[in-house]
Amino acid sequence: DLSGKLIIKAQLGEDIRRIPIHNEDITYDELVLMMQRVFRGKLLSNDEVTIKYKDEDGDLITIFDSSDLSFAIQCSRILKLTLFVNG
Rank of each mutant, 00 (worst) to 15 (best):
G41F: 05
F39Q: 01
F39A: 00
R40E: 14
S45W: 05
V49A: 04
K52E: 03
L43E: 03
I19G: 00
V49I: 05
C75E: 12
S45R: 12
L69N: 02
I8W: 03
L60A: 05
T62D: 15
D55S: 15
I16D: 03
L69G: 00
I61A: 14
T62W: 04
R18G: 14
D68A: 06
I16V: 13
R40M: 08
G58E: 05
G4I: 12
L79D: 07
S66G: 06
Q36P: 04
L60R: 03
L60D: 10
V85F: 03
K9L: 15
T27F: 00
F84R: 05
D65C: 08
L33C: 08
I8T: 01
L31P: 00
H22K: 12
D68H: 06
L6A: 07
R77F: 05
L44A: 07
I7P: 01
G41L: 06
C75Q: 13
E24Y: 07
I73F: 07
G4N: 13
K42G: 05
K80A: 14
F64P: 03
S66M: 03
P20H: 14
G4K: 10
A10M: 05
L6T: 08
D55T: 15
F64C: 09
L2H: 08
I73K: 08
Q11G: 03
V38W: 04
I26C: 06
S45F: 06
D57E: 06
I51D: 00
D57K: 15
E14C: 12
S3R: 05
K54H: 13
N46R: 10
I19T: 02
V38P: 02
I26M: 06
T27I: 01
D1V: 03
G13Y: 06
I61F: 06
D59T: 14
R37V: 12
I63H: 01
A10Y: 02
D59L: 12
R40Q: 13
L79T: 14
D59C: 13
L33F: 07
R37S: 10
I26Y: 02
M35T: 07
D57V: 12
G58D: 04
I7N: 06
E56S: 13
L79M: 04
Q11T: 08
A72P: 02
H22M: 10
K52Y: 08
R18I: 13
V38D: 02
D65I: 01
D68K: 04
R17G: 03
S67T: 12
L2G: 02
S70G: 10
T50A: 15
F71P: 02
E56Q: 14
I63N: 00
R77T: 11
S45D: 11
V85K: 12
D55P: 14
A10C: 05
D25K: 12
D15N: 09
D15S: 10
V32Q: 10
I63R: 00
S67L: 08
M34Q: 14
V85I: 12
K52I: 04
N86G: 13
G4L: 07
R77V: 06
N86R: 11
E14V: 09
M35N: 00
L44G: 10
S66A: 03
S67N: 14
L2K: 13
S76A: 08
R17D: 01
G41I: 05
D29Q: 10
L44N: 11
N46E: 14
E30W: 08
T62L: 01
S3Q: 09
D57W: 04
L69P: 00
I78L: 10
K5G: 13
I21D: 03
R77Q: 14
L12E: 01
G87E: 11
D1A: 03
R17F: 08
K42C: 07
F71H: 12
R77I: 03
E30F: 07
I21Y: 11
R17H: 13
A10W: 00
I51V: 11
C75P: 04
L81R: 01
L2Y: 14
K42H: 08
D29E: 08
D1F: 10
Y28G: 01
K80F: 09
S3D: 14
K42P: 04
I21L: 09
L44V: 06
I73T: 04
L12D: 01
T82L: 07
E30A: 10
I73M: 12
D25S: 10
F84W: 07
G87H: 12
K5T: 11
Y28V: 03
L79I: 08
D47Y: 03
S3K: 12
T62I: 02
I51S: 00
S67R: 13
D68Y: 02
D68R: 05
I16K: 13
I61N: 14
R40W: 06
S3L: 04
K9A: 15
D65A: 03
D29L: 04
Y53W: 05
L79C: 08
S70Q: 09
L69Q: 00
I8M: 06
S70Y: 05
L43W: 09
A10K: 00
G87V: 08
N46S: 09
S67A: 13
H22C: 12
Q74C: 05
Q36R: 10
N86T: 10
D55Y: 04
A72T: 02
K80Y: 08
L33K: 11
I16G: 02
V85Y: 03
L83I: 10
I63W: 02
S45M: 10
S45Q: 11
S66R: 02
S76H: 08
L83Q: 01
V85P: 08
L12F: 10
D1H: 03
P20A: 08
L60Q: 09
G87Y: 06
V85H: 11
T82M: 13
N23C: 06
R17V: 13
L2D: 03
A72I: 09
L33T: 13
F64I: 06
D25W: 04
K5W: 05
D65H: 05
Q36L: 11
C75M: 15
K54V: 10
K42M: 05
I78C: 09
C75H: 15
L6I: 12
I78S: 10
D68M: 14
G13E: 06
E56G: 14
D25N: 12
M34N: 09
I7F: 08
S76R: 12
D68F: 02
A72V: 07
D55H: 15
R77K: 11
G13H: 05
E24G: 10
L12R: 00
S3N: 11
A72S: 02
L12K: 01
I21G: 03
R40S: 13
L6V: 11
K80G: 11
G13W: 04
Q36Y: 10
I51F: 11
T50Q: 09
S66V: 01
E30I: 02
I8E: 00
I16H: 12
G4R: 07
T27G: 07
I19Y: 03
D57M: 12
E56K: 15
L43M: 10
V32W: 06
F39V: 02
I21E: 01
Y28F: 08
L6K: 06
T62R: 14
K54L: 09
P20I: 12
R77M: 04
D1Q: 02
T62A: 07
K80M: 13
K54R: 11
I61P: 02
D15W: 11
Y28M: 05
G87W: 09
T82W: 09
K52N: 04
G4F: 12
D59S: 15
F84N: 08
I19A: 01
I51Y: 03
R18H: 15
G58F: 02
K54D: 06
K42T: 09
S76E: 06
G4T: 13
N46D: 08
Y28R: 04
K5D: 13
F71W: 06
D68S: 04
D29I: 04
V38Y: 11
G13T: 00
L83K: 00
K54I: 08
L6W: 07
S67D: 07
S76Q: 08
D68W: 02
P20W: 06
T50P: 07
D59R: 15
N46F: 13
L60C: 06
I19V: 11
A10R: 01
E30N: 11
T62K: 13
I61V: 12
E24W: 04
P20Y: 07
Y28L: 07
I78A: 11
I21T: 07
D68V: 08
K52W: 05
Y53G: 00
D25H: 10
V38G: 05
S70T: 10
F84M: 06
K9N: 15
L31D: 00
Q36T: 11
P20M: 13
K5A: 08
L12M: 08
D15R: 04
F84L: 08
F71G: 14
K42W: 04
L60E: 08
N46V: 11
D29S: 09
E56R: 14
T62C: 11
E30K: 09
E30T: 08
F84H: 11
I19E: 03
S67F: 04
T82D: 10
E56A: 13
I8D: 02
L83T: 01
G13F: 05
I16W: 05
N23G: 14
K52V: 10
I7M: 12
E30M: 05
E24Q: 08
L44P: 11
E56H: 11
I26L: 09
S76K: 13
G13S: 03
D65Y: 00
D15M: 13
V38H: 11
L2R: 06
I21M: 07
L6Y: 10
I7T: 09
